[in-house]
């Protein structure tokens, strides 16, 4: 059994994301062979100019979308943690959509079944990560994210104390 923290998912850095939506276009290009953000597995939210962030499936432990599905159409792949949709079972009822705290699972406008980021598992890495011009999107484990946050916090702490000493 894979260790949980081996699972890598797509995560955008709020400090770096500028809300350009290239990830959405890339996703539809790779997955659907067209340009159409409404068919993207990653979506960008822009609330005013200063708040921008791309959001995709975070491969939750004990994922609520899977638990919410009354038709057993969703399952979490053990190795990778990605959510597998059984398109024959899914009837687009939307319980999983309601259960997801991040809006990461969505109803496909054409197939009318749910779809979600699969981290481009057939390719060497998620293509939104590959294309993001700001290098704002990472394909990371929760451990590495925690490390990054710790390092940022500690740097800030020391920056403040260095500045105080200088005064």
């Amino acid at each position: 059994m894979a260790k949980l923290h081996d699972r890598k998912f797509v995560s955008a850095d709020p400090e770096k994301c500028v809300g350009c939506c290239i990830c959405e276009y890339v996703c539809s290009m790779v997955k659907e062979k067209t340009f159409n953000p409404t068919k993207s597995r990653i979506r960008v939210i822009r609330i005013g100019p200063l708040i921008n962030l791309a959001v995709a499936c975070r491969l939750c432990e004990d994922p609520p979308c899977v638990a919410a599905c009354p038709r057993d159409a969703l399952a979490q792949e053990e190795e990778s943690g990605i959510i597998i949709v059984d398109e024959d079972k899914c009837n687009g009822c939307g319980w999983c959509i309601e259960a997801c705290d991040y809006g990461a699972i969505m109803l496909h406008p054409e197939t009318k079944v749910v779809y979600v980021c699969d981290t481009c598992k057939e390719l060497d890495k998620p293509q939104c990560v590959e294309w993001c011009p700001e290098e704002a999107i990472d394909f990371v484990t929760a451990d590495v994210l925690a490390q990054k946050s710790r390092r940022t916090a500690v740097k800030k702490l020391f920056q403040t104390s260095v500045e105080k000493t200088a005064e």
Binding site: C20, C21, I22, Y25, P49
Partner: peptide
């Protein structure tokens, strides 16, 4: 405060 970008632009 921040430099942001338009849709699909790699420049910002």
């Amino acid at each position: 405060k921040k430099i942001i970008g338009c849709a699909t632009c790699a420049m910002r």
